[in-house]
């Protein structure tokens, strides 16, 4: 029978040999971690403590930051600064943005106009087809008033085309 003291010592030795927690804690937003580092949130913050307990690299980084503060700055090459500066997607200038709206409106107008012209052309084509059908199949009954008016209409259309 071992004493509780010896059991504790034995347990401590086993733990120092290594263990793992059964579950890995979910991530915590960097903003919350930063607040914890600066003691701006309650000291006992369960999600953060659970994350730090299960992530050794993050724990060391966060505790180091809490104890030592942000590191001394390092030099950055001009080339790197230029590359980082170009990461921001270019925003169009005010004039450019107005131009974009005008172009969009023009595109809509063009599309609408094109649709109208197409519809008109369709009705004209339909009339021409009716005329052709009438001329092909409907002229046998010569002498009728309809035929006469059609011939006048067709003749005037031909003149118009010429």
């Amino acid at each position: 029978m071992t004493s509780p003291h010896h059991e504790f010592e034995d347990l401590e030795r086993r733990l120092r040999a290594g263990w793992q927690w059964s579950e890995h804690a979910p991530n915590v937003p960097e903003q919350d971690l930063a607040a914890w580092v600066e003691s701006q949130c309650p000291s006992e913050h369960e999600p953060i403590e659970a994350l730090l307990a299960s992530d050794p690299q993050l724990r060391r980084a966060v505790i180091d930051l809490r104890l030592s503060g942000p590191p001394q700055v390092d030099a950055a090459s001009l080339e790197l600064r230029r590359q980082i500066g170009h990461l921001m997607p270019a925003q169009p200038a005010v004039i450019g943005r107005i131009g974009m709206w005008v172009a969009a409106a023009a595109a809509v107008l063009l599309a609408f106009g094109g649709w109208q012209l197409g519809a008109a052309s369709e009705s004209e084509r339909s009339l021409q087809q009716d005329t052709l059908a009438y001329a092909t199949f409907g002229l046998s009954d010569s002498g009728s008033e309809d035929n006469a008016s059609f011939l006048i209409y067709a003749g005037s259309g031909k003149e118009g085309q010429q």
Binding site: R14, A17, G18, W19, Q20, W21, S22, E23, A25, E44, E46, P47, E49, A50, L52, A53, S54, R59
Partner: peptide
Amino acid sequence: PIGPVIPTHILTARQRL
């Protein structure tokens, strides 16, 4: 390190940390 897997719920988050 490789070792026993301890159920997370046995201890509080602070105790684990």
